[in-house]
Design a protein around this nucleic acid. Structure first.
Lengths: 131, 131, 131, 131
DNA sequence: GTGGTCTAGACCACC
DNA sequence: GTGGTCTAGACCACG
């Protein structure tokens, strides 16, 4: 499991964590019953404040994705994977849709957008294979 | 010229205005030398506070896109269109890139993404033609 | 670091803050990497509204003099001191020049002006030493 | 009589007019009993709005420097010259003093200030003789 | 009518 | 605690 925070990408830091934890569960790199990364550990890794991580976990707990295991940390709840997989599609689609809508309203033609997207996708693919 | 604000899309309201004014200038629906919509008028139209619009205009003034004409309103500066066209590409690309990156890191395969994007683009096209 | 606001000296309050923060950085009483006075703290000290201070800081951020440190405050950016020293000269000169020009056009002879200025400078010196 | 407006020198336009009319009366280029320049005429000359000139004249009327002469315009009142001469010194001194104070508080040494002022005064003298 | 400035007070994200 | 954003409502200079 590897999280990556981008400051100023529009999403609040705690929200980026929430989303990425969900994605990790959806993708199977974090399984039901497993321990989520410790608050302090994750905070150090991402060089952010532990309170921010705690706030993200609190949100995940509220959404019944994680639950506290006394003295151990936060554990992925049963049936979380199904919900996360469903949500993943929605969250990603929603964000892409919002960006595309702005571009469209901003006067970029659909064909231009297609070209632009293709370029970005290729770049992402390259970065991936080169790693 | 028609602006549209989405609360909670991650961007601050004043920033959405800044971007959309730039897009309008880039797209030619707001031309150099023309008056931008009045502060109060735009605030009424978007049902937001005039101060929020004023803040957006203030930033556009600082970026030398608009200039104040005492007692008249905000006028689009000379040479603003060129800069806005350049910026439009950057702003849109940046946002799409960030969304695509998250999707990719979230475990969506490139092919899946392509399909998803295609669906969205088609939907946008339809909405456009149906209007 | 001690700021002093004069209402009705022609300059907007937020502008007086902007200038004086620049002067403080230029003069070394506020150093690169240090925290600027907090928004609420400064507002209380000057008995003005926090929003007015925030506006000044926002402009200083735009001019790359300060940068926000999340949850910490506003930090003086690297290389700010050099720029502030340069600007200090310009800002002060500009204002003096404008005042002198008016005096001259208003019919005060250069010699009279010289005497008047000398008197003022002496008075300023005295006030300083008496403190 | 020749007025000169500088936008953004800190003083409001109408205030610049008020001051310069007073200076003109103090200096004798506008005498008691004479007609002040017409509102429309002065507005055209300075390329500003007649309302702004009117506001300045209204202020001068309030201060009993000018009085309306039905159907003719605004006339310099009796005894205005004495008061204007007195005020001229105060107005100019006040403005210089404020600028010097800011410079001093901004950390400019008195000697530096002296040098700077001397340079400006010489420049003003030159401009005058070269005209 | 226009924008510019200021006040007052609120909620949010982050440390 | 910090700054960032938004609302509400006021007064001013200018056209």
């Amino acid at each position: 499991m590897h999280l990556h925070i981008e400051p100023n990408n529009g999403l609040a830091i705690y929200d980026q964590i929430v989303r990425q934890i969900k994605f990790a569960i959806a993708g199977g790199s974090l399984r039901e019953g497993e321990l989520a990364p410790g608050v302090r550990e994750l905070a150090r890794e991402l060089t952010i404040n532990p309170n921010t991580v705690a706030r993200a976990y609190q949100q995940l707990q509220f959404e019944e994705i994680l639950e506290t295991a006394r003295g151990t940390g936060m554990v992925v709840k049963k049936a979380a994977a199904v919900r996360c997989r469903k949500e993943r599609g929605e969250l990603i689609q929603e964000r892409l849709r919002s960006a595309l809508l702005e571009a469209k309203k901003g006067g970029v033609a659909t064909d231009e957008l297609r070209t632009l997207l293709d370029k970005e996708l290729r770049r992402l693919e390259k970065e991936e294979t080169s790693k």
